[in-house]
Simulated assay, not measured.
Amino acid sequence: MSAPLGVILAGGQATRMGGGDKGRLRLGGRSLMDHVIDRLSPQVSGLALNANGDAARFADLDLPILADSIDGFAGPLAGVLAGLDWAAGQGVDTIVTAAADTPFFPCDLVPRLQLATDGMAHPLALAGTPDPRRGLARHPTFGLWPVALRDDLRAALRDGVRKVVMWTDRHDARMAEFPDEAAFFNVNTPDDLVQAEAML
């Protein structure tokens, strides 16, 4: 399977952090986004950032900035769609997404997502980790997505679908299980940032 393009999802409003660009918060002297770029870029054939508002504020990253094409902060699926449309223009079949506020995700994210979709006509998978209560916790901002389903996703978003798993379940998405529960720890609050510093 050829290397997918990577898309960092940073299109949210970061309300629990008081707004602003959460990916710009500092962790170990560097931004959360820097940590995410370092982990994702070796695993993909190219990288872009899904973000809304003035793209110029990310000029220093030297990445394509992809805004949502669906109005009204439609959630991660809108960022996935922006990435799929970008990939279609590049002639690439798949993308892998990662959240801008999750600095410790696995360095083998992409190959394990690809392995989980072996044999699928339209490779679609989400990352998962063990959960003592639910058995398996899905991490819907970390996935492998096929360009072939982008028009289906566009129609679903226009119909009001916002929950990632509601759409991925329709297409029998696979699960790539990762053993480390802490790997997908994300920074949502100031307390989370303190915890991330300790983890670092």
Rank of each mutant, 00 (worst) to 15 (best):
T189A: 10
T168V: 07
F142K: 00
A99M: 11
Q90K: 14
A198C: 09
D118S: 14
A74T: 01
F58E: 06
K22P: 11
L27C: 05
D60H: 15
S31A: 11
P42W: 01
A74K: 03
D38I: 02
M33N: 03
F104K: 03
A3C: 09
V92D: 04
C107R: 15
A100G: 08
G23Q: 03
L9P: 05
T15C: 10
G119D: 06
D180F: 05
G79R: 00
V165F: 07
P111Y: 12
G46A: 06
V36P: 01
Q43H: 02
M120L: 09
F58M: 10
G72S: 08
R57W: 06
K22E: 12
L47C: 01
W145A: 00
G79C: 04
N186Q: 14
L200V: 10
L61S: 08
R154V: 04
P106M: 07
Q90D: 06
V194Y: 07
A67V: 12
Q195G: 12
M1D: 12
V96A: 02
A14Y: 10
G20S: 05
D38S: 12
T141N: 14
M33W: 02
W167Q: 07
P130Q: 11
A182V: 10
Q43E: 03
G19F: 04
G46C: 01
A127M: 03
R16M: 13
D21G: 04
G79L: 02
W145T: 00
G12T: 03
H122N: 15
G28K: 08
T189E: 12
A100D: 15
L157K: 04
A87R: 01
N186H: 15
L136M: 14
G89R: 10
R57Q: 14
A82P: 03
L81C: 05
M33C: 10
M33V: 02
L5M: 03
A116G: 01
R16W: 14
A14M: 11
A82E: 03
L66W: 07
A156L: 11
G23N: 01
G53H: 06
D151Y: 12
L49V: 09
A10L: 12
L113Y: 02
L200C: 13
R138T: 12
R134E: 15
R133N: 15
S31R: 11
G128M: 03
P140Q: 02
G79D: 00
F104T: 02
F185E: 09
G53V: 07
P111H: 13
F73Y: 15
D68H: 15
A59H: 12
R138K: 09
L25K: 10
A99S: 15
M33A: 07
T94C: 11
N50Y: 09
P103S: 07
M1H: 11
R162I: 05
A155W: 11
Q13G: 14
D21C: 08
D101L: 09
L153E: 07
T102M: 13
I8A: 01
L66A: 09
A99K: 08
G11E: 05
Q90S: 09
Q43F: 01
Q90M: 13
A51M: 06
I95V: 04
I65C: 09
D118P: 03
L84N: 10
W167D: 04
Q13K: 15
G29Q: 08
G46M: 01
L200E: 10
D21H: 11
M120C: 06
V187K: 06
V194R: 13
R158K: 14
A196N: 01
L5G: 00
L27F: 10
D169F: 02
D180P: 10
P64N: 00
V165P: 04
H35F: 01
H171N: 11
A3H: 09
A125R: 00
